[in-house]
Each structure stands twice: as C-alpha cells, then as structure tokens.
Nucleic acid binder design. Structure first.
Length: 280
DNA sequence: AAAGCACCCTGTACGC
DNA sequence: TGCGTACAGGGTGCTT
C-alpha cells in the first residue's frame, strides 16, 4: 500500500512529465472517488488547467494549479497513478483519466475504491492537520520528544496517526519500531531520551532506504510507480509480513499481533517490553 | 485523550 | 471447479 515513500517516488516521476502540461480532457469513470466536488464541476475547472508545482504532504500528492487551487490525490490502499499514452483505454479499475496536451494521459486506478481525489481552493483544507514530515528538517528527536510527552497511547497506533506524524503506514511503522528496538505496545510517554533519539533516527533511516529503493511492492502488488514498475524495498523488510520467520538480528520467530484493529509485526526478543510496562 | 467499533471495498486465500 | 467466508489495509466518524 502506498505510504510516504511510494507517494514521493510517484511525485518525482510525475513532476518530470506533467508540470506545465495542460489538461485537455477529464473523464470521471467513478464519481465516488471525488470528494466535495461533482464530476461536472471537477471536469469544468480542470480542463484547460495545468499544474505549476507537484508536491507531497504525508501520503497526499498535491498538484498546485496554475489558475489557483489544488488537485489532491490520496491513494488509499490500492490506488495507482499511471502515465500512459493519449487515448489509452481505461482498465477494469480505472476511476479517473486526465488527458494532457502532448499525447500524455494520467490514469487513476483504484480497485478497492479507498482512494480519494479532491479539488480544493486551499490545500490546507485537506492536509492542514497533518503532523510533521518525518524526512523534513523540522523533524528531530527534540520535536518527537515533545510530541510524545504526556501521551499514554501505545507507540504503534500513535505512529499510524497522521496527525501525529505524517506519512507512516503499517509497513514503515513496524520497520521503524524494529530498527529502534522498541515494542509496538510500549506507552509513548514511557520512552526515555535515548529511545526517542533511536526512534527518530530509525524512522528517517527506514524511509530513506525505502525511498532509495523506489518504494515497497508487496505480493498483492498494490503499489507501482507512474509506469507500473514495482519497488525494490520489499527485499529490505525485516519484520513486516514476516510472521513466523526468523528475526534477521537474533533468529527468534517474528510475531504478529493485532493492535487496535491493525496488524503489528515485531521480534519478541529484540523489541522486548520492560517489566514495569508489562503490568501497565 | 484513549480505545473500540463499524464503515467504505474487493482481491486473495482458505475451507468445504 | 466453485461456492461461501474471513481478512487485509487507511481514514473517518461515532461511542464509550
């Protein structure tokens, strides 16, 4: 599923081809993908527009429009943005097509329909409440420390909360916790300074590695870049989706538990809970 | 503030 | 071969 690094990889691919290109024609095949906008208004505003900047915030991809406003995509679990040739036929799960001048097409495919497309005057309406960007300079151990302060929530659900940190999904949250040697059930306020520094570094490290590898494509193939190509980071995963397999560090079987309705993968030996935390 | 739940949706994996 | 069912996931919204 597309998380920060997958969206960032897409952003780079798409920016190189689409910035400055004029939208010639819009086809909304599944209106359910649109938020706060009828297919008619959507097409009317977009046709003739072009994006002068393509940015990303968390898992959101933002086309800054030349005439004002923003076109924003969230890929949900299975959304893909694909560059194609002009007039290319829609696939079974194609929800939206933008035909550009210059014989290029951008297709939004989304089998599970969890993705969303918004056309807004101000992007802040969509991304305004997101937490800090973990790869940005503004994210540091000090910042993480103040974010964690007073929070009694367990670490893993907190990392998945986009208002806490933007862009982490289930894969990279599990991987970061493994890298930092922290148990997903640990209470946020119980982390000491050293653990916070480790977690901060682990988040950046895991994301940077995934970015270098052009994202993670799991066996469900729910992620591909703008040309449908798979990422390579799945080979680097230490715990996610590896329940029962040996921990790469110590050989103990990786465990999978459910935390607030989401799967969490960890090594019970490398990511131990301290005794006093178990009682809480 | 935390946690639990239902909901959205469908491809896949499983048991029979 | 095929049917039914459970499950996975991110985000939102509601309730306790």
């Amino acid at each position: 599923m597309p998380e920060l690094t997958e969206v960032e990889t897409l952003r780079r691919d798409l920016a190189a081809k689409l910035v400055g290109q004029r939208v010639r024609e819009v086809h909304v095949l599944w209106p359910g993908s649109l938020r706060w906008c009828s297919p008619q208004d959507f097409a009317r505003y977009l046709e003739g527009q072009s994006a002068d900047v393509l940015s990303r915030r968390g898992k959101y991809l933002i086309f800054g429009l030349q005439g004002g406003g923003a076109l924003i995509f969230h890929l949900g679990m299975s959304g893909r943005l694909l560059l194609g040739a002009q007039g290319e036929e829609p696939g079974k799960h194609t929800r939206l097509i933008l035909e550009f001048d210059g014989q290029r097409q951008l297709r939004f495919d989304d089998p599970r329909k969890f993705g969303r497309v918004c056309l807004v005057r101000d992007a802040e309406k969509v991304v305004g409440k997101l937490g800090p960007e973990p790869l940005g300079n503004e994210f540091s151990a000090e910042v993480l420390c103040s974010l964690l302060e007073g929070r009694s929530r367990r670490l893993k659900p907190l990392l998945l909360n986009q208002q806490f940190i933007a862009g982490l999904g289930n894969i990279y949250a599990d991987e970061a916790l493994f890298e930092a040697g922290l148990n997903p059930c640990m209470r946020a306020c119980d982390l000491d300074k050293g653990e916070i520094a480790r977690l901060c570094a682990a988040i950046k490290e895991v994301l940077e590695r995934a970015l270098h590898n052009r994202g993670t494509t799991l066996s469900d193939r729910s992620y591909g870049d703008a040309y449908g190509r798979e990422g390579r980071n799945q080979e680097q995963l230490r715990v996610y989706g590896r329940a029962g397999q040996p921990c790469p560090r110590c050989g103990t079987a990786i465990q999978r538990i459910t935390l607030e309705g989401r799967g969490a993968h960890f090594c019970p030996r490398c990511q131990r809970l301290k005794k006093e935390e178990k009682r809480g």
